[in-house]
Amino acid sequence: MDRQRCRTLKVLENRPVGQSEPASRFFELVLEWPGWSRWTPGQFVMVRPDWGAELTWARPFSICRADERGLVVFYQVVGRGTERLARVAPGEEIAVWGPLGRGFAVEEDTPTLLLAGGIGVAPFVGYALAHPAPEKLHLVFGHREPLARYPFAAFPAPVAKENWHEQNPGDLQSFLARVREQVAAHAASGLVLACGPLPFLRAVQAMARDTGARAQISLENRMACGVGACLGCVTPDADGHRVQVCTHGPVFWSDAVNLDPEKPS
C-alpha cells in the first residue's frame, strides 16, 4: 500500500543529455530515491514540480531506472510542462506519485525482443538492468535524433543491441523491415516488448498478429491524474470497452487493445 504514496522528492540532477544547453530537448532527471519496496519496469510516475496553478496537471513519465542512487526519468521537451520541468534546478522539490500502472512481463528463460522508438527506449534501460538474464535480451532501437541524446549506452553489456538512425526517406522502412524480421524470429518461443510512438506500436501490433508472436506494447495517452479517476486516458480494449491506460496499462498485451478504433478489433 505504502509504496504508491504521494511524495515530495528532492531533485538531485536535471541535466541535458548529448547536447549542450540551451538547445537540448533531451533531459535526464534524477530524484532522490523514494524508498519503494518494489516496482516493475514499464511502470510510470506522475511528476509535478511546484509550478503554481497555471499548469493544472502533473506529467506522466515512464521510469527509466530506480534504485538506491535515485529515481531516474528520461524526458524530451515537447510542451509547456516539459519546458518548465527542464528549468527545475537540483535541490528543488517535486511532487511524485507512483510507481503506477502495469509494467512489462519479465520471463527469465525467454528470448525477449525490446523494440524502442525514440524516447520509448527509456523504460527498457530499467528493464535490462533488472532482468535476471540480460543475455536473453535483444534491443532494436529506431531514432531520429543523434544517438548520444538517448540513454543507449546505459544498457548492460550482455544485451544485444542495434540502433537505426532515421535520417533519410526510406530509413524508416529499413528499420521496420528489421523489426518485422526480429518479431518473426521471436514468434515461436520468444517475447516481444514495444515502446514508442503510436504508429510504431500499431505496426508492431500488426506484426505480432501476423506472426503469432506474444507481444506487449506500452501506450501513452494524455492523462490528468494517473490513478484511474479522470477517465481522460482511456483506450478501447479488444471488446470495445474504454479502459484507463494509467491503471489497466500502460503496458498491454498487444491483442488486448484496439489501436485502430475506426476498425472493428
Binding site: 496553478a53 499548469l55 482511456v234
Partner: peptide, 13 residues
C-alpha cells in the same frame, strides 16, 4: 462508455 477521445485538455489554471 462515454465520449470518444480525446476527452481532456489542460487549460490555463
Amino acid at each position: 462508455e462515454g465520449n470518444p477521445m480525446p476527452r481532456v485538455a489542460e487549460t490555463a489554471c
